[in-house]
């Protein structure tokens, strides 16, 4: 399955890009994160939440969406 990954704030500093498309076999979010941790070592020490199709999801959630975003702590306002 082809998905679009979006990175923001300090997460984008680690990945050195704001967006990428990858083909994955991962079924759940946790498996995708394992893949990303091996690709981007620095992610392991970062605090972030995952959004799938613009809704926050937990790590055991099934991957159904085309767009998955890694969101560092919100600091608006």
């Amino acid at each position: 399955m082809r998905i679009t990954l979006k990175y923001f704030g300090q997460i984008a500093e680690v990945t050195e890009k704001q967006e990428e498309q990858i083909d994955i076999e991962a079924q759940v979010i946790a498996e995708l994160l394992e893949l990303l941790y091996s690709k981007y070592e620095g992610l392991k020490s970062k605090d972030f939440q995952v959004a799938q199709n613009q809704e926050l999801v937990i790590n055991t959630a099934e991957i159904t969406g085309a767009e998955i975003a890694l969101l560092p702590p919100f600091s608006g306002g």
């Binding site: 704030g9 975003a69 702590p73 608006g76």
Partner: peptide, 21 residues
């Protein structure tokens, strides 16, 4: 609490850190 906005605090010496609410 709920809106994904991210603030980067830029210091006078142009270094930065990420804001935490």
């Amino acid at each position: 609490a709920d809106v994904p906005v991210f603030g980067k605090e830029i210091f006078e010496d142009e270094s930065h850190q990420w804001k935490v609410n």
